[in-house]
Simulated assay, not measured.
Amino acid sequence: MRIAIAGAGAVGRAIAGELLVSGHSVMLIERKATAIDPDAIPGARWVHADACELGRLEEAELQNVDVMIAATGDDKANLVASLLAKIEFAVQRVVARVNDPRNEWLFDESWGVDVAVSTPQMLASLVEEAVTVGDLVRLMTLRQGNANLVEVTLPDDTPLAGKPVRRIPLPRDAALVTILRGGRVIVPEPDDPLEGSDELLFVTTDSVEDALRQALGLGSPEEYGSPAR
């Protein structure tokens, strides 16, 4: 996959390194000449350009990438780069970094953002996920389609233990995508049985989260105001 990253600071370089290890083609776009350092990420294509300038993005051939990641430390720059990538270059997937949580409401499809990543929100979700058993924890909002990636760790005494996946009456706009069990990542098949302590990952919408709780035999959100017991 061809991926462009706007911003070659610590965050942008870290993302680039991970993507290169996974076999993707990476282009780093950086406006500060002093930050251009091909030796730091030798497998990436480095472009000295302002990701908010249409002409420079045309020179970088942004129309040829599959994913744009706006990862600068400036929310205004990330929004403009996202909008240009989506509207002017029809980039299929645009991911944007949110630096200030107060600006998160701006990072949606109207600015060309498919997925907004807010570090504070993500850290809070990860902490909640680590200590919560028996309720849904929202890990990420997928802006396209207003869907969420949510996680639930089944209690040891879950009534679903031993039941196959096909027996879970999932609401229409909820899909089970992964079961994490004892270090394994399981792509669920209809006849796979569930077990206590399974960690389930769903893609769902806001409107059906309560119905999903009911389908999983969980209590209401108000019952989980404290960490897992």
Rank of each mutant, 00 (worst) to 15 (best):
V152A: 06
K86Q: 03
V47D: 06
A40C: 12
G55E: 11
E58N: 05
A85N: 08
D74V: 12
V115W: 03
T153F: 05
N148S: 15
V11S: 03
D157S: 02
V115N: 02
R45L: 11
A81V: 06
G196H: 05
V150L: 06
R143M: 08
T178L: 06
D108H: 06
G17T: 10
A211E: 15
A161Y: 11
E59P: 03
V208D: 02
G9N: 14
L218E: 04
G73Q: 15
T158A: 11
V150R: 03
D37M: 12
L149N: 11
M68F: 15
V165F: 02
P188M: 08
H48P: 12
V21N: 07
L200C: 03
T119H: 09
T153V: 14
V177F: 14
F202E: 01
G219N: 04
W111D: 01
V117C: 07
I3K: 06
S226K: 04
E129L: 09
D100P: 07
V21T: 08
V65A: 02
R184W: 08
L139K: 00
W105H: 14
L62S: 05
L212A: 12
A215I: 07
A228E: 00
H48L: 15
E30W: 01
V115Q: 00
I69C: 03
K163H: 12
P164D: 13
T132N: 08
A81Y: 01
V127K: 09
I41V: 15
W111Q: 05
R97K: 14
E209N: 00
P38D: 09
T72A: 07
D210N: 08
N148I: 06
M1F: 09
I179V: 15
T72P: 07
G7F: 13
V150I: 11
G112V: 08
S118F: 00
V131Y: 10
T72H: 11
S220F: 04
G225T: 13
